[in-house]
């Protein structure tokens, strides 16, 4: 497993070389590696950040030296301990990753879905068919990033894949449900963005007052359910 510096205060553990061939297996291996590293509580480590094929480890070089590393061996000292943690585990039990299924209600009214027609046109489907196909699919959160709480969802039916807009929008409302290339996602906070908007959820995906602050975590499974405009307004927080 490759371990590479990410500047002088972080490193990246490359769990898999690529992601496309086996997205689910890759995700499980990343999450299992993260859990091993989390449980190991290595000295000087500040936090772990998983992404598609990697787990990033942020650390404080000063604390690594305080823990016994020579100042000219900080990276090697930590990398060696990371390798030990990973290789000492009898096996990375990817099957034991606990995932929850989260249902996201979405209102697909035209007002919330300025790009639904474009997605439908490219797919050669009607707008309602796009919505039905989108809702019939189970997605998985491959990572959280871009903005606080933004889930990158894998599992989008290939028919619905739609390139990002050539000019990003300056402001996308919070809760917007979107397609960007072969991925689906939800904008948790108002932000600029280039994905195609097909609906909006009344749920808050990110609330800094909550623990944890994000509704979704890497590994979670997600399903969308169509709701009426009325139901959207009732559930809007």
């Amino acid at each position: 497993m490759e371990i590479a510096p990410l500047g002088d205060s972080a490193l990246i553990v490359r769990v898999r070389e690529s992601f496309d061939g086996a997205p689910d297996e890759t995700l499980n291996a990343v999450l299992a590696t993260r859990r091993l590293l989390e449980n190991a509580q290595l000295p000087g480590v500040i936090e772990l950040a998983p992404a598609y094929t990697t787990v990033a480890i942020f650390f404080d070089p000063v604390l690594i030296v305080a823990a016994g590393a020579k100042p000219n061996e900080v990276f090697d000292w930590l990398a060696e301990r990371i390798r030990k943690v990973i290789s000492n585990a009898k096996e990375v039990r990817a099957d034991r990753i606990k995932t929850s299924l989260v249902e996201i209600p979405v209102c697909y009214d035209a007002e919330f879905a300025p790009d639904l027609e474009e997605v439908a046109r490219r797919a050669g489907l009607g707008a309602q068919e796009v919505v039905d196909l989108y809702n019939a699919t189970e997605y998985r959160v491959h990572c959280i990033g871009f903005t606080p709480g933004f889930p990158f969802l894998g599992g989008l039916p290939s028919k619905l894949a739609t390139p990002r807009r050539s000019t990003p929008r300056k402001e996308i409302p919070a809760g917007s449900v979107a397609i960007g290339g072969a991925q689906a996602g939800i904008y948790p906070v108002k932000s600029p963005g280039g994905w195609n908007l097909i609906g909006r959820t009344p749920l808050r995906l990110f609330d800094p007052q909550k623990k944890p602050p994000a509704l979704l975590r890497a590994g979670d499974r997600v399903r969308f359910r169509a709701i009426s405009r009325e139901e959207f307004e009732q559930n809007k927080l």
Binding site: A49, A56, F58, P148, G149, P208, P212, P213, A214, A218
Partner: peptide
């Protein structure tokens, strides 16, 4: 620090 996994 500590909330990168949630995109913060």
């Amino acid at each position: 620090a500590g909330y990168r996994q949630f995109g913060v």
